[in-house]
């Protein structure tokens, strides 16, 4: 089962298992991971599902589209080179993903 390891801004880690095909955002929200807000429910309209992806995991993810790139300029905590919107990241069978959530999403 794919697993996402969420580290919050304080360093606390939560490992959540998800289903292949689901987004990282959905996996977090359904299980109440507090660092992801996801107001728009994944429709790429809110930028409140921002995560920082651990460098070595970046290459496992599909490249981002223009819309995600532009939305990332509006996140509550400024974007970094390893920023992604977690609603755009889909879990795959063997994915083991490490992400950090920002201090705030709104």
């Amino acid at each position: 089962m794919p697993t996402v390891h969420f580290t919050d801004a304080e360093g606390e880690v939560r490992d959540v298992q998800g289903n292949p095909g689901d987004s990282v955002m959905e996996t977090a929200v359904r299980n109440g991971v507090p660092g992801i807000v996801a107001e728009c429910g994944g429709s790429l309209s809110c930028a409140t599902c921002h995560v920082f992806v651990r460098e070595d995991c970046l290459s496992k993810l599909p490249p981002m589209e223009d819309m995600e790139d532009e939305m990332l300029y509006g996140t509550a905590v400024d974007r970094e080179d390893n920023s992604r919107l977690s609603c755009q990241l889909r879990l795959t069978d063997e994915l083991d993903l490490f992400v950090t959530t920002p201090e705030t999403q709104v």
């Binding site: 987004s23 959905e26 359904r30 299980n31």
Partner: peptide, 12 residues
């Protein structure tokens, strides 16, 4: 995908 929270979340 439209479900807000898992059943486990509410129970917990």
């Amino acid at each position: 995908s439209l479900i807000f929270r898992s059943n486990e979340y509410w129970a917990e």
